[in-house]
């Protein structure tokens, strides 16, 4: 990338992407609380569809991956594969206290330290679980990032180094800042 593509078609694609981001949710070992709050976002009261946000089952169709919960060792490689299947540009939201640091589960024997050990995270949402309005705020923050990245021609301007993923023992963890 490097040089921003300012062609007409690329500008159209960027505009369309920011107006209708598609989301996929991956439960990497959460307690369900974050998942039901995401579904509550789709419901008449919060209604994220008014922002053009749709939840899709397949990661191949998605722009934004929401990872709910901490990552169990068994799920780490699956999460990495789901993330690898998403087309560029892709964004990751880590939900709740567990997504950021493990929350109450920090340090248990079957846990990876945090989501950003496995995939690079763009937005963290605080709370246990976050309220639906905070989830909507996170997605909107993600959309602003998307527009900024399009202007910079890629994500590299704000990333130091990418996450490497973990091995089977959960040891080779490189945290992205």
């Amino acid at each position: 990338m490097g040089v921003p593509d300012t062609g007409m078609s690329q500008r159209l694609v960027n505009w369309a992407r920011a107006k209708s981001p598609w989301i996929t949710v991956y439960n990497s070992g959460a307690c369900n609380a974050c998942d039901i709050e995401i579904i509550a976002c789709l419901m008449p009261r919060f209604d994220v569809e008014r922002f053009g946000i749709l939840v899709k089952g397949s990661p191949r169709h998605a722009d934004i991956l929401i990872v709910t919960g901490h990552v169990t060792l068994k799920q780490a490689s699956r999460l990495r594969r789901v993330w690898e299947q998403m087309p560029e540009p892709k964004y990751v939201i880590a939900m709740g206290a567990c997504g950021a640091s493990g929350g109450v589960f920090h340090g248990l024997y079957h846990m990876v330290e945090s989501v950003d050990c496995v995939v690079p995270v763009d937005v963290y949402v605080a709370g246990c679980p976050p309220r639906p309005d905070e989830i909507i705020n996170a997605v909107v923050t993600c959309l602003n990032l998307l527009e900024e990245d399009a202007a910079h021609g890629g994500k590299e301007w704000r990333q130091k180094k990418p996450a490497t993923g973990v091995d089977a023992e959960g040891k080779s963890c490189t945290v992205v800042s």
Binding site: N27, G29, A30, C31, A33, H70, T72, K74, Q75, R78, G103, V104, F105, L108, Y109, H110, M111, C128
Partner: peptide, 25 residues
């Protein structure tokens, strides 16, 4: 087994005040 976190083991290491928030989750 995908969601196994090891809560039962963790519950043995925390006192009664700290174990309740864990078991809620």
């Amino acid at each position: 087994s995908y969601n196994h976190r090891g809560i039962e083991k963790a519950a043995e290491q925390r006192n009664f005040i700290r174990v309740l928030p864990l078991l809620e989750r």
